[in-house]
Design a protein around this nucleic acid. Structure first.
Lengths: 113, 113
DNA sequence: TCAATACTTAGCGCAAGAGCTAAGTGATGG
DNA sequence: CCATCACTTAGCTCTTGCGCTAAGTATTGA
């Protein structure tokens, strides 16, 4: 379970920026080139490129270059890892409420004895 | 949809640290005091406190003080927001694969005509 | 072949993040 | 009522993140 932990850090870090989340949103509709992706943002290209590299290094996207154009694609596995972690947390919480319910039930039983 | 965007930044930022994720994991089992939470970590208390404050400011936890003890509790809404965002991304992706499938189907139909 | 295109590299500046120590505050317990 | 406990504040490092400009490289279209 915990071996996920390390890899989640760069993923959450990558998701913690609005520009990068917007890029992810765009890539959800299909692959795109750097300049296509950069176009909506009021930002110098090298600054934008840093976001792309961050996304790539965290594993959230893949890129490959054909000629002078670099195309970016979404990678789904990291999202599944985040979802798995969230599910695990939810399970913890729900496990607890189950125990709470049992506790409340037990109290109720005692009181009505 | 996009009004979530702003609030997601501090949430993902808060999740982007192993100490804070571990604290969240612990709080999944129920509320705890600062020193209980801090105990497993090899870190000075003030350093640990910064993580707690970060978690609180991002809305992931609530805290309240009774006497000299501050108790921390998990807050579920931020997790639901993250899950909603992930669901939205998945939907985008799946919408695309649907369109891809339709495209492939259309091609196939053409070819077999 | 040569200018334009699409990045890419190098390097700077400022703000935040993540850790520390030292010293302070305000409950509790004996 | 005084020591101890449980934080809390202040202030310091060092690193990383996020933006910029200027200049460089490698394709491509005319």
């Amino acid at each position: 379970m915990d071996y996920h932990s390390e890899i989640l850090t760069p993923i959450f870090q990558a998701l913690a920026d609005p520009t990068r989340r917007a890029v992810i949103g765009r890539l959800g509709r299909g692959p795109a080139s750097i300049s296509d992706l950069a176009q909506p943002f009021d930002m110098a290209l090298p600054s934008f490129m840093k976001h792309i590299r961050f996304l790539e290094e965290s594993g959230l996207i893949n890129t490959h270059k054909h000629g002078r154009i670099r195309t970016c694609t979404l990678e789904r596995k990291p999202f599944q890892m985040v979802e798995a972690w969230l599910a695990q947390q939810r399970q913890l919480w729900e496990g607890r409420t189950d125990r709470l319910e049992q506790f409340v039930l037990a109290q109720h039983t005692k009181e009505t004895e």
